[in-house]
Design a binder for these strands. Structure first.
Lengths: 253, 253
DNA sequence: CGTTGTGAAACACTTCACAGCA
DNA sequence: TGCTGTGAAGTGTTTCACAACG
């Protein structure tokens, strides 16, 4: 996962577990694909496969939303798309600003997945005066000086930070002061925000580091297996990282 | 989510919990910053603050690695940097290929956070013949046709997919067939891979959708509080004397 | 002292397994 | 009959709280 929370869940939603919320977009994506293929209904088994989870989890997740299925049949695709969209708040329009229009900011501005889900890039903001006025993804870049005005005039409550690490906290502070209450942070730094403001982060290098950890472990296991260990190879592995392996670092006493 | 499961007692195995592994890069980043400021030691409290977690969790996490602290003093910064790096496998060089050199791929190629942590962009690959030979981030783009050869010659085991959704699975299949065993997927699609291959995904729009969910909830609470109205329809059974029932958060009346 | 390291308790999430309904 | 919805059991994670120790 690529993400983190800053402080308490505060209100534990309407009883919907955070883990479930995090999967709703996944279900929505799978359902949207089915909808485009005009599939009328889908079973928990099929939908789960399409979303990459197991069916018991999916049914449990849906049970938090309500009883939207029909026993013996499955779920109505269109209806479920609507219910999940509503639950996620995607039936309304969310104006978003992206701050920091470098490579990543530009990629985000161009990313089609936003517009198609109720997110509208209301403005692009960058500190470089040379960028001002230059269109990126068809939207003219504006200067940081006008940040507060832009937030205010567009009623923006969600901000995306794609600046260098050093600029992230000051930008964050200004966004929050201007009324933004949700922030998606791509800068590799910990942001501190007041209570009531949500921060999620995406750190590209963290994901790679986690992969490297498992990759290293695989290599260790191979070597070990080769060395003659019997090591029962797990039947039925889903996605599985074997237990031990790897050179002993320190045996915790 | 590419997470593993360790069935089997694992009594003595030094299995580090997945949640802990996911935080190690965070600690490492904080420690690196301290190291650059030549701070010699740090307490769990200070380091936890810098990493954005609480100190008990941090100590517990470190306890899985070994006893690297000194009671009454704290942790030696340099030593801890080394231990965590080693644990994550960052003391070795990881050649990585990026497939799909659009906006996002280019952003990734330019991202400094990789190189600084043992990841080396060994090659950039794109299906567009017009891109071939064009340097991005100083690295010439190569054509998809040569994918297998590139993987093989560079001993690549980690691949990054930044292609459009439709191209992701075929690219994934080829990467895996060529020997890649860890994949970081930016395409908004579920990849299926054989056992033994790790996939982690980063979906930009999913993060925004999660924010929208919470944002909507905030707005709802506000309105509710203001209207002093009693709660929502709540069309679902949910009796169960479950954990803590519904959370206060909203002061009704 | 002050801070780590860690059992034990609390909590969160997942999976099982099957009753109940269309 | 086939599939949903869900208690209950199982597993993983966080937090508490304090003994151990430099």
């Amino acid at each position: 996962m690529a993400t983190g929370r800053t402080h308490r869940p505060a209100t534990r939603s309407r009883g919907i577990p955070e883990a479930t919320v995090a999967r709703l977009p996944l279900y929505l994506r799978a359902l949207t694909a089915l909808s485009e293929r005009s599939v009328p209904t889908v079973s928990s088994e099929e939908l789960a496969a399409a979303a990459g989870v197991n069916s018991a989890k999916l049914r449990k997740d849906f049970s938090y939303l309500g009883s939207y299925g029909t026993r013996g049949v499955g779920y109505d695709v269109e209806y479920l798309v609507y219910q999940i969209s509503r639950e996620l708040g995607l039936t309304q329009d969310w104006p978003v600003v992206i701050v920091g229009i470098g490579n990543l900011g530009a990629a985000l501005a161009n990313y089609g997945g936003f517009a198609s889900r109720g997110f509208r890039v209301a403005a692009l903001i960058d500190a470089d005066p040379a960028m001002a006025g230059k269109p990126v993804a068809g939207i003219p870049v504006q200067h940081t000086d006008d940040l507060e005005k832009i937030i205010d005039e567009n009623g923006v409550s969600i901000g995306v930070i794609a600046t260098p690490a050093g600029a992230a906290q000051p930008v964050c502070d200004r966004l929050v002061a201007a009324g933004v209450t949700s922030i998606l942070n791509f800068a590799p730094t910990v942001l501190s925000v007041p209570d009531g403001v949500d921060v999620r982060k995406v750190d590209l290098s963290i994901e790679l580091q986690i992969l490297a950890f498992h990759e290293q472990r695989k290599a260790g296991e191979e070597a070990e297996a080769q060395a003659g260990a019997a090591a029962a190879p797990a039947e039925r592995g889903n996605d599985d990282k074997g237990p031990d392996g790897d050179v002993p670092a320190v045996m915790p006493a």
